[in-house]
């Protein structure tokens, strides 16, 4: 994946020079290790700041919403599916964007790595399969596949589903992964156990809404949690309000979520709120045979009616 960068720079420079796009959205090095940040290159010179490694987990599609200029955007598999969703939902026009596809071998989970070391991590160097972590008094090389984000380890759409340019040949997709083990575990619990499980899961939530802000699907001008007239959900730390926020946010992503992991990645207290969206994703797949963001010409299941839609719940 590291070798992509030359090609990324080359394509971005060409697009900017030829005036095909007004800016290219990519990543640059962040101020902390394992924290790359989005970079908006508006000139060929600014392209030099671009980087590409295993810390580019942020979903760049988030920056496309309702833009009017012509944009080049780097897109991993999940990003490209969110771009498709954006096109379906009329948040960006297809002819307005140049999608630079990046086949993705998974992003690393900085929390997993931080948890392995007691001290502060000063430097993280990676090559194709290993990550070397350096800090005061320690240095260790770990296997990259052991520290992947969970959603990346279970990813079945690593290659971009739409693209105008590709930085490398498509890579092999994973086929032997069972995506929904964790969801099934929760499904097997009794109602009371489920309630307790989610209560425990959401207890640390501080209602910072980072998950909402990082999510490319959450683009409402006024979010339901921010509205005060009417106030749909309480704004305090009451566990009922916290759960309501998370349940509702997940529902808004039904049939749209691509499990890019941006929400979990952005959470400052490390809540895995993907258990909610994944359940909806699983239901969509089982009930409607639908996976979000694969084709800009197919309307999503919540948008269409078919006589065969499942209705067993209606007595």
């Amino acid at each position: 994946m590291l070798s992509y960068i030359d090609k990324i720079k080359e394509i971005s420079k060409r697009l900017l020079k030829e005036g095909q796009v007004d800016m290219v959205i990519g990543f640059r090095k962040g101020t902390l290790p394992m924290m790359n940040e989005p970079h908006f290159a508006r000139s060929p010179e600014a392209v030099e700041h671009f980087v590409w490694d295993s810390n580019c987990g942020i979903n760049l599609c988030n920056y496309l919403t309702s833009r009017t200029e012509k944009i080049g955007i780097l897109a991993k598999g999940c990003d490209s599916r969110n771009i498709v969703t954006h096109i379906i939902e009329n948040k960006i026009k297809r002819d307005q964007i140049v999608i630079i596809g990046v086949p993705c071998k998974g992003m690393i989970d900085r929390r997993k790595i931080s948890a392995m070391f007691a001290g502060e991590i000063g430097e993280v160097i990676e090559d194709d399969n290993t990550i070397t972590v350096k800090g005061k008094g320690f240095e260790k090389t770990i296997d990259k596949k052991d520290v992947l984000q969970q959603n990346c380890a279970l990813c079945i759409h690593r290659n971009p589903v739409i693209h105008d340019e590709m930085v490398a040949d498509a890579i092999e997709e994973q086929t032997d992964v069972d995506r929904y083990t964790d969801v099934r575990e929760i499904e097997a619990l009794s109602p009371q156990e489920k309630a307790t499980y989610f209560e425990k899961l959401l207890e640390p939530c501080i209602r910072c809404y980072a998950c909402r802000n990082a999510c490319p699907l959450c683009y409402c001008p006024t979010c339901f949690t921010d509205e005060s007239r009417p106030q749909w959900v309480g704004k305090g730390q009451d566990l009922t309000d916290v759960s309501t926020f998370h349940f509702l946010r997940a529902y808004h992503c039904a049939g749209r979520c691509t499990d890019c992991g941006a929400c979990e990645r952005s959470c400052p207290v490390g809540i895995n709120m993907r258990v909610f969206t994944k359940k909806l994703e699983k239901d969509c797949l089982e009930l409607f045979g639908w996976e979000a963001g694969l084709d800009p010409d197919v309307r999503p299941p919540l948008d269409t009616y078919k006589p065969g839609d499942p209705d067993d719940f209606i007595k």
């Binding site: 929760i186 109602p191 307790t196 007595k315």
Partner: peptide
């Protein structure tokens, strides 16, 4: 899935 018992919410 949220922990509401199956019979508590019914559709007809």
């Amino acid at each position: 899935h949220m922990g509401i018992e199956p019979d508590r919410l019914q559709f007809s």
